[in-house]
């Protein structure tokens, strides 16, 4: 009896880790190239863009909101980088381009945030409109043509590495640590949980809920900008048509990681696992050369399976 309880406790606490490890072992057995250093680093490099988005999305979901405009914001970010780099071509200083991309994305997200916080627009609708607006903006700014990014300095962001460790992955991990600290060790983090848990009670406890929601959306925008910069640098182009559907992967990562879409609960360590699981699925499917027709089904099934196992083990407690 007590042994049973122990196993289920372990599974509840580390269920996702176990799933992840099992997946790794399975893929490792089936494909010898999986456990090579290059491949592992590749996975880290590939997940970093979605990872950065998922960090912001975790915050948004914890406050009980959602943001489906992040894919479009990623595109805007890349296009802005392209536009600014084009207009200051000749200098090696890419800082203005990076800064402009982050600022523009933050502002756009703040607009969605205001719609949600002040005008009480349902977050799905507010960010749906922003999704269309931002995509349109990206097309208008770029005139529909991708910018070719030739700056060598800029290429470092997405392609560079420190030692053997890819720079995008490093940016992701540093961002993750910073946001983990914010969520778990500051009053702001507490407020984020409180607003999502019960906005009325949070208001009655003197929390400025509108400001919290606005800030969370602002952060989401900034992170979308960052993610877009890395993506643009990685593929060497700022394309207005790119990153469609990225929001879904980010939301999926959070949900796999145990963040409730109802708000109030969620952990960044879970999100990290969710991001890795999703990244691993793509990696494994291509390493194992699984038929493209089947890939989508397999991916959907694995996501559903992970979430069911996680919810089931958690529900058992109650």
């Amino acid at each position: 009896m007590s042994k049973n309880i122990n196993i289920s406790t372990i599974f509840r606490k580390f269920g996702l880790v176990i799933i992840l490890v099992c997946m790794c072992i399975l893929v490792g057995v089936l494909s010898p190239s999986f456990f090579t250093a290059t491949n592992i680093l590749n996975v880290f490099r590939q997940v970093s863009m979605n990872g950065i988005l998922a960090i912001g999305m975790t915050f948004v979901l914890i406050t009980g909101n959602i943001d489906i405009s992040v894919g479009s914001l990623v595109a805007v970010s890349g296009v802005i980088v392209g536009k600014v780099l084009e207009s200051i071509s000749g200098t090696t200083n890419v800082f203005p381009a990076v800064l402009a991309a982050i600022i523009v994305c933050t502002c756009l997200s703040l607009i969605s945030g205001s719609m949600v916080a002040f005008f009480k627009v349902p977050p799905m609708i507010a960010t749906l409109s922003m999704m269309t607006i931002a995509r349109g903006m990206a097309l208008v700014i770029s005139n529909g043509q991708p910018y070719i990014l030739r700056s060598k300095m800029f290429a470092v962001i997405g392609k560079g590495s420190i030692g053997a460790f890819p720079l995008p992955a490093l940016i992701f991990i540093v961002t993750l640590i910073i946001f983990w600290v914010v969520l778990n060790m500051t009053t702001f983090g507490r407020k984020v949980y409180a607003v999502g848990g019960n906005i009325k009670a949070a208001t009655a406890s003197g929390i400025n809920c509108q400001r919290v929601i606005l800030t969370v959306y602002g952060l989401m925008g900034a992170l979308s900008g960052l993610s877009g910069i890395i993506l643009a640098s990685r593929i060497g182009s700022g394309s207005p048509a790119i990153a469609e559907g990225y929001e879904m992967d980010a939301i999926a990562a959070c949900v796999i990681g145990g963040t409730s879409t109802l708000g109030g609960t969620g952990k960044l360590q879970g999100t990290l696992l969710g991001v890795l699981i999703i990244g691993l699925i793509s990696n494994a499917l291509s390493l194992l050369n699984i038929n493209s027709y089947w890939q989508q089904i397999v991916k959907g099934l694995i996501i559903a399976f992970a979430v069911i196992i996680d919810t089931y083990t958690k529900a058992k407690r109650g």
């Binding site: 190239s33 590749n42 291509s286």
Partner: peptide, 22 residues
């Protein structure tokens, strides 16, 4: 290997990275 990258540049890059390793 014979897989899709949905006409997209970013997906293609990730896919090619995986192939090169494998």
């Amino acid at each position: 290997a014979e897989q899709t990258a949905n006409w997209q540049r970013d997906e293609a890059m990730a896919l090619a990275e995986n192939w090169i390793v494998t």
